[in-house]
């Protein structure tokens, strides 16, 4: 494909024994917003760290902006912008100095640095903070500054690792607006997130990653449609028996446990399937204590493909392994 900006094939990355990324393949076209959605510790950050050259390539192939990551890492660096997961700013530099420093590191000529800083400070609405030390900025302003910095070199693709982590809902919504605008102006965006709504709102395409593998990939509506028309959530006196009963009921698809109840995917109009389900449960004497019906959300998509809600125990394992590897 001619307008392919990122192509990843069979990417695998290990920290000692732990396989953090396990044979991941995907491609991103020019102008897309592509999201990696997964719980903490799923391998998202490892993928983005390899793609942005902060971790060495182990196995697999990566081509970004036409450059092979293994043989031309410096050319890849020139073609990308990065917004790291943690704040990567010097508290004691001003907004303008931060951008100036970045421009110089990337070898931008003085004139271009000047115009670019003015443009970007305006884009992220930090004009009034031009000469303010970063320690006096709010969390949202710091994030905006980091986005501006990522755009200094007019990158082909902007990588963002959990761009709105720790921000309040209003600031997140603003951040999404900035990212949409950046994307409209032609920058391809690759982001990782563990927020369902973020992936849903921003992305053209989403890859759901879990245990270092891509378990599903597609446009948000495609992923949601794959779950059927409606989702029925049931709380019963005996979820195990209820599940057995429902699995034999017509038009009932996959059933997952969620919270204290069951999440039932139905292939037909839920308002027509639900009475049959209730009849079947009554016949088998399973008491129903609560019902809810809704359209599938990204949350449900995630549960469907990973078999569970967000979990944390693996996240800690990966974090430990990464730290250990980092100390070597």
């Amino acid at each position: 494909m001619a307008d392919e900006v990122i192509r990843v094939a069979g990417l695998t990355h290990r920290f000692d024994e732990l396989v953090a990324v396990d044979g991941v393949s995907f491609s991103v076209s020019a102008g897309e917003v592509f999201s990696f959605l997964g719980p903490n510790g799923a391998g998202k950050s490892t993928v983005i760290n390899v793609l942005t050259t902060l971790l060495p390539m182990q196995d697999g192939e990566v081509v970004i902006a036409g450059r092979d990551l293994r043989t031309e890492p410096d050319h890849v660096r020139e073609a990308i912008g990065i917004v790291f997961q943690e704040v990567t700013l010097d508290r004691d530099m001003t907004v303008a100095e931060t951008l100036e420093f970045h421009g110089r590191l990337y070898g931008l000529p003085r004139e271009e640095r000047r115009t670019r800083i003015d443009e970007l400070v305006a884009l992220v609405e930090l004009e009034a903070k031009h000469d303010t030390l970063i320690k006096y900025l709010s969390g949202g302003m710091k994030r905006r500054l980091e986005i501006a910095r990522g755009l200094m070199t007019r990158p082909t693709v902007l990588f963002l690792d959990e761009p709105t982590i720790g921000l309040d809902p209003q600031t997140r919504a603003r951040m999404w607006d900035y990212l949409r605008q950046v994307n409209r102006e032609g920058t391809t965006i690759f982001l990782t997130t563990h927020y369902m709504d973020e992936a849903d709102q921003l992305s053209n395409r989403i890859a759901i990653i879990d245990y270092g593998r891509i378990v599903a990939e597609g446009r948000p509506y495609e992923l949601k449609n794959a779950l059927g028309q409606d989702l029925i959530y049931l709380e019963t006196a005996d979820n195990a028996r209820a599940r057995a009963v429902l699995e034999g009921t017509p038009n009932v698809g996959a059933i997952h446990e969620k919270g204290g109840g069951l999440l039932v995917m139905v292939a037909d109009d839920g308002t027509r399937v639900l009475p049959h389900m209730l009849d079947a449960l009554r016949t088998e004497n399973v008491a129903v204590t609560g019902i809810n019906m809704k359209k599938p959300s990204m949350d449900d998509v995630f549960i469907h493909y990973t078999g569970r809600e967000l979990r944390d125990e693996r996240a800690e394992n990966v974090a430990t392994a990464v730290n250990r590897a980092g100390r070597h």
Partner: peptide, 16 residues
Amino acid sequence: FDKNWGLLREVMAAPM
């Protein structure tokens, strides 16, 4: 300091 609280990641990712 840069590694823990600052700019080292940014410097290390630069094409130089």
